[in-house]
Structures are given as structure tokens and as C-alpha cells.
């Protein structure tokens, strides 16, 4: 099979250099896995997007016009380009990786179509990267403890969730987030369990509260023209490789989140850095409140951003899979 592969030199823009997706997966995948699996025929030179001088949300437009061939990016970063890009990453939608993957699989055909028709992009893979959870300065006993707290938000659906818990939302640029948490400009920040642990948010916060606010769901994509120009064998090979990468990332998300939360709270951590945070698990009552907020704040907010047809389509796919109905109010 390898012999049939043509010789190819490709270029890709990877995830942010601080993400575990880049450090623990993509870096080796592009440097070793692809050349090995292709018998040395295919080489992809990859660079994290921040090292290339990019911010993130513009990746899609660069893929669209062919300035980049292949790229990965957090799909909800591009929600401003199309609200469907946050459809599987809504705050409070799912609590574990298998459920998140069910939502993704249900919605994949929609995203494949939107990417291709509207953005000239071939969608190659989709997977959750890390559970977005609450890191708070104070003791958090339950969902009601978030009431009145200043919570750092970074997208619209998280803002809807924060409104739902009656917190007050603050927007603070990423670089100022940790000092802001340290000094109390914000009482809580939301970030990935893994990235928060790696960036040592446990130095400046006390309670970890796993009310999921999305997954930082990543997508891999290619410029459609560049993709169509590839020989069919190469397409099959690359599609297969990206699907493998997708599976790996989903596994890493589940295991990584678990380990990061153990280490941030100093429970059976094998890593040299351990935090002393308290983990407040989501109780059954909290979970009911989550569903309530999802139905009354997050989904209606998104349905309004997305419009009628888009909402109907979501209800027929993700909604049916998870037993939820989105409705604009």
C-alpha cells in the first residue's frame, strides 16, 4: 500500500504551542508518525500557529484562501464566522468525552458541509481537547456559590451560562487572566483542566469546579483546492491519519483531564508539580441546574445567534442524540 503513495511535501499549521494537542500529539505526529506510516513518501512540515505569528480565529480564512494548506484550530474560535462552529462546544452541553463525541458525530455531516460549501475547507477531523472547567479563588460548594462571582468569560455561550448562574461576567485578555485571578479582578476563570493545570492556575485559585463549559473542540482541515489536487491514494492515507489523530486526542482529553484534576488537587499525582486545590464535584442537584440553565439560557442564546433553519438542523442531529431541544426566545 505504501508503495502506491506519491511523494509529497506538505505544510501544516498546528495548534497553539502551549496546548497539549501540539506538545503531546501533533508535533510527533507530523515529524514521525506521518513519514513512518507513509513509508517516507509524505512529509508534512508543521508549525504551531502562535509561532507562525497567528492569533487563531483567522486560521479559517487563511485555509479558505489557500494561504495555509492544512491546519488545526479550536473550532469555536471561529463561531463569529458561523454560529454552527460552536454548536458542539456550547457551555454546559456535555459532561464527559464519550457524550461529547456522540454530539460531534451527530453533527459532523453538517460541519463537513458548511466547511466545504461556505469556507472552501475539507474537514478532516474533530475531537474534544480538554474539559473547560471553573477555577475559583473562593470555596465553591455548589452551583449557587457561583452567584455574584466575577467570572472571566471569553465567548457568547459561556456568557449565557454565567448569566444563568447569576454570576457577573468580566472580559479580560488571556495574558492578564492569571494576574487578574491572583489579585481578584476576577473571582473565577474558565479554562481547560489540562491547560489550567499546566499553566499552574492552582497557584492563584482554590477550588476546581468541573461544571463543563465546552471542550475546546479542535478541528483539522485542509484548503479544499489543495485537498482536491492531491492524488486519491494520498487523500485516503491522510484522511485515515487525521481520523487516527482524532481518536488519540479524544483519548488524551479523557485521561489528561482526569490526571490534571488529580494533580491540581494533589490526589495521587505522579507529576512533580502538585496543587492543593479542592475539587467540588457536580452533585445531582447541580446537574439538574445545569440542564435547566442549558435549556433556558445557553440553548436559546445560541438559537438566536444561529437562526431558525440552523436550530432545526441542530435539533434533528445533536438535539436528538442528547435529548435536548434548542429554541430561540
Amino acid at each position: 500500500q505504501d508503495a502506491a503513495l506519491p511523494e509529497l511535501q506538505l505544510r501544516a499549521i498546528g495548534a497553539n504551542s502551549t496546548f497539549n494537542l501540539w506538545t503531546d500529539l501533533e508535533q510527533d505526529w507530523y515529524a514521525k508518525q506521518i513519514p513512518e506510516a507513509s513509508g517516507g513518501q509524505i512529509a508534512i512540515e508543521a508549525l504551531p500557529h502562535d509561532v507562525a505569528g497567528l492569533k487563531g480565529p483567522e486560521i479559517l480564512s487563511f485555509l479558505q484562501n489557500g494561504a495555509i494548506q492544512f491546519a488545526s484550530q479550536a473550532i469555536s474560535y471561529m463561531a463569529g464566522d458561523d454560529p454552527r462552529f460552536e454548536a458542539v462546544d456550547l457551555a454546559g452541553l456535555t459532561l464527559d468525552v464519550p457524550t461529547a463525541m456522540r454530539a460531534i458525530d451527530a453533527y459532523r455531516p453538517v460541519l463537513e458541509r458548511v466547511m466545504a460549501e461556505r469556507f472552501n475547507v475539507k474537514l478532516l477531523g474533530l475531537a474534544p481537547m480538554s474539559a473547560q472547567v471553573f477555577w475559583c479563588r473562593d470555596q465553591i460548594n455548589d452551583i449557587d456559590s457561583l452567584k455574584g462571582k466575577k467570572i472571566r468569560v471569553f465567548n457568547a455561550s459561556l456568557t449565557d451560562l454565567v448569566n444563568g448562574v447569576q454570576g457577573s461576567s468580566v472580559t479580560i485578555p488571556f495574558v492578564e487572566a492569571v494576574p487578574a485571578l491572583q489579585r481578584g479582578v476576577a473571582d473565577c476563570g474558565v479554562t481547560g483542566a489540562i491547560s489550567g493545570y499546566r499553566a499552574k492556575w492552582y497557584d492563584v485559585t482554590k477550588t476546581l469546579y468541573p461544571l463543563n463549559s465546552g471542550w475546546s473542540t479542535m478541528f483539522w482541515g485542509a484548503n479544499l483546492d489543495a485537498w482536491n489536487a492531491l492524488p486519491p491514494e494520498a487523500q485516503t492515507f491522510l484522511q485515515d491519519q487525521y481520523r487516527q489523530m482524532e481518536t488519540r486526542l479524544a483519548e488524551m482529553a479523557a485521561a489528561g483531564d482526569e490526571q490534571a484534576m488529580r494533580c491540581a488537587t494533589g490526589q495521587n499525582c505522579t507529576d512533580s508539580h502538585t496543587g492543593r486545590m479542592t475539587l467540588t464535584p457536580l452533585s445531582e442537584a447541580d446537574n439538574q441546574r445545569r440542564l435547566d440553565i442549558l435549556q433556558n439560557h445557553v440553548l436559546p442564546g445560541w438559537a438566536k445567534r444561529c437562526g431558525k433553519d440552523c436550530t432545526d438542523e441542530w435539533n434533528a442531529t445533536v438535539g436528538r442524540e442528547l435529548g435536548l431541544t434548542a429554541e430561540a426566545r
Binding site: P57, Y77, G80, D81, R118, V153, A156
Partner: peptide, 11 residues
């Protein structure tokens, strides 16, 4: 063309 919005609460 695509009616792009900022992905912030302000949109």
C-alpha cells in the same frame, strides 16, 4: 459576505 461577528459576548 459571511456576516462575520466577533466571538465575544458583544458579537
Amino acid at each position: 459576505t459571511i456576516n462575520a461577528k466577533s466571538m465575544t459576548p458583544l458579537g
